[in-house]
Design a protein around this nucleic acid. Sequence first.
DNA 1: GAAATTTAGTTCATATTGTCAACTATAATT
DNA 2: AATTATAGTTGACAATATGAACTAAATTTC
Lengths: 188, 188
Amino acid sequence: MNKKVENMTDRSDGSFFRGHLAPQKSEPDIRDLFSFELQRLAGLSTRIAALSIRPKYGITAREWRALAVLKYLGEVPLQELAKHSGLLKSQMSRTVSSMIERGYILKTANPEDGRSILLKLSPEGLDLSQAILADAFERNENMLSTLSHAERQILIELLQRVGRNSAHYFHDLKTRASQEDLRELDEE
Amino acid sequence: MNKKVENMTDRSDGSFFRGHLAPQKSEPDIRDLFSFELQRLAGLSTRIAALSIRPKYGITAREWRALAVLKYLGEVPLQELAKHSGLLKSQMSRTVSSMIERGYILKTANPEDGRSILLKLSPEGLDLSQAILADAFERNENMLSTLSHAERQILIELLQRVGRNSAHYFHDLKTRASQEDLRELDEE
DNA sequence: GAAATTTAGTTCATATTGTCAACTATAATT
DNA sequence: AATTATAGTTGACAATATGAACTAAATTTC
């Protein structure tokens, strides 16, 4: 739960504390940027995952992610799966059809909507996703081993909150952008 | 519609590891995985950045990152710049040569090593990186607006620690992998 | 109830990114 | 001197991302 994090010193300019330089009246620096650190770590995490998943299971990280997401979703249309995985439906469509070919995902017609399909894991897909998930937890354990248990919970919780907040922000940005596009068309 | 899913994205107590809630019966679930949340957020952040940087400055996020990293590094060889940006030297070489063509980065020979080059920002590159950095801080502000300033500090510190720790882990993994490759060769 | 609009999914085209190996030219080691 | 290692560049290719065109089936509108 999320209260215990108050009462730390804020810098009034809103920038982050930087471990490497003593900040007095410092200029903006990319090392102070949340998204920079985020991207570097995400890239690292991708490389770590690829190192263990690809050679061992003959599957890409994205394919595996689709399986693992489908595992908790149960049986859903493609669009739903794409949304929860953070992919476009076009990407998900390809990913899924490759997983169907290999027998990890089963596809049935949606009785309630003829345009839609229902996807779920096959028994093989379930086994595979579980096996890889176990590996993934081990990798995460190693990545996070420098943090205490409490710190891990805080980290994940903060990431989730930022994730939800950023999703809203992104949606607003896109909406605003397309409105501006329309205005420009008008002016021409 | 599907009912297996609802109320899972948002657990009311805000805790992440469902194992603590229902330790006995819960199977591993990808939503419990740090790297999953990390990747989703990083993807979002990429899209948000692209939305604001690309159309406005005619530069990709990666190119900009190179400029911004170079800004704090000063004048360094390419390898050094690549390492701090989390890119391979081959990627950085391409990125840099495009930035040189456009006049944002200056390249001089390294007097101490004929193989190496020294890179630094041109005045134009400095201006550009500063302008984009200001935008980036604004974007981050919006992404993080749900957190208190103290929480932001904690988040970035935790990310930095995990980043350092994961870099070591990755290095170990790679070393181990190539040793295994060697063993296999021996056995043949 | 026919026409127009919207939606789910597939496919195509294209751009970007990531990875690795070959290649050059220097430098360092033996 | 010969070998080996390193810095950077380049080529080839796989993976990823984005958007738009297309189909078929809903849904809405008149």
